[in-house]
Computed example of a mutant assay.
Amino acid sequence: MHVSRRDILLGAAASGAGVMLSGVPGANLAHARTRKPALINGIIWQIHGGMLDIHGEWEMLGANTLMLQWIVADGKAFVPGLGLPVVEDAPNWRRIRREPWTRRMIVGLATQMDEPEARRNVAALVELSARIARQKLPFRAAAWYFPVEADPTWADVGKMGALLSALPRPLWVSAYDNSNIGAEAFANWVEGWLPKDVGLMFQDGVGLHMRTPESARHYGQVLGKRLGPERFTMIAEAFRPAGDGQMRPATLNELGPQLLAYQGFEILVFDGPHYLNRKLIYGLAREYLPRLSSAG
């Protein structure tokens, strides 16, 4: 049974817990590789009713990018002005857009919370996403993300690949390999459906112990070589199983080596607001940020 990133956090909440450069997703990320050393480039925020007011000091680790996993889910909007019902107590975008970790924003568009339903309705979600991307937002989108996740068990993933032409660029999608088909086979599968002007974010699988950080790095190396580094981003899962179907934040000595293993890639942490808390931020800054030079 597949457990997706959205299943993990939404379940925890319920229980209380070859193209022109301008169109390449990574074109706007190039500056990040020339910045001072950073453990991470940004964080992902899975917005839902239990997490609408986020605060953190993720910039201490080098983060200057916030990716919103979606701004519309199940027909409800988390930003005003989209012609859809808006959630109560919507996020304070005026404050959020002024944070140092939101200098760049990757904006996830429309989805459904249930992943199989989202896949079945991918055409309608692309249509809705294209419409909301044309609306005025309370922040500037440096890039876009289409929030229907893919994996090799999705037989109709090619349908999504073809539909992505309707969405604005730069554009990203994400994929995972819980079937462990291997890096080369996974890259073959990705190349079979991903448009050449769309970037891939790879969910590392470390959070659910699907693979080690070293194995995830190998996937990243293969995908980066196949797609080009400007079209690849590593999603570092900052959670671990806590038993009874619950998740906990990764410990300092779990997450630190994981982030060091991914140096050289663009790194977004999932999910920053839920799992990358103040204590962990300070520990990483103290214990692991100084190791970047020795990590190469």
Rank of each mutant, 00 (worst) to 15 (best):
W70E: 11
K196T: 15
D156G: 03
A90M: 13
R120D: 12
I181L: 13
P195T: 05
W189V: 02
A187I: 07
G192A: 10
I132S: 02
F202P: 07
L84E: 02
L84V: 12
V72E: 09
R104P: 00
F146K: 06
R97V: 12
A162T: 15
M105T: 13
R140W: 06
P85H: 12
P138V: 11
L171H: 00
F139T: 05
G199D: 08
A150G: 07
P152D: 01
F78D: 10
E191P: 00
R119P: 00
V126W: 13
I181Y: 08
V87R: 14
N92S: 13
I132T: 04
D74H: 09
G161W: 11
L137M: 07
V79I: 15
G83R: 01
P195I: 04
D156H: 14
F146C: 01
F146I: 04
L200Q: 10
L84R: 08
A73T: 15
L109F: 01
S179A: 15
R103I: 11
L128Q: 15
A118D: 01
W154A: 03
L200W: 05
E99F: 01
I106T: 07
T111K: 11
V72S: 05
P195E: 03
R97A: 15
A150Y: 01
E184V: 14
S174I: 04
A73S: 15
I71G: 02
W172V: 04
L194G: 05
L167N: 04
P100M: 06
A90L: 15
L164Y: 13
A141S: 09
D74F: 00
Q203S: 09
A183V: 06
A162H: 13
P138Y: 02
D204A: 12
L109A: 04
L137W: 09
V126A: 08
V148H: 10
W101T: 01
S165L: 09
P168W: 00
V173S: 06
I71D: 06
V198G: 03
L171A: 01
P100Q: 05
R119Q: 15
R120A: 14
R97L: 11
G192F: 09
G83L: 11
V122M: 14
R104N: 10
P138A: 14
R134M: 13
W70Y: 08
D89W: 06
F186T: 02
L109K: 03
D177L: 08
S179W: 04
V72K: 09
N178I: 11
W144T: 04
Y176V: 09
A118N: 06
K196M: 10
R94D: 15
R103C: 07
S129M: 08
L164A: 06
P138C: 10
A77G: 08
E117Q: 15
D74I: 12
A130E: 02
K76P: 00
I96L: 15
R169A: 01
W193D: 00
G75R: 14
W172F: 12
V126D: 02
L84H: 04
G205C: 09
L200Y: 00
M160R: 10
E99T: 13
F78M: 15
A183F: 03
E117A: 14
I96C: 05
V87L: 11
F202M: 12
P85D: 08
A130V: 14
R104L: 07
L82H: 00
P170Q: 02
V107L: 09
A90K: 11
R119S: 00
E117I: 06
Q203R: 10
V86E: 07
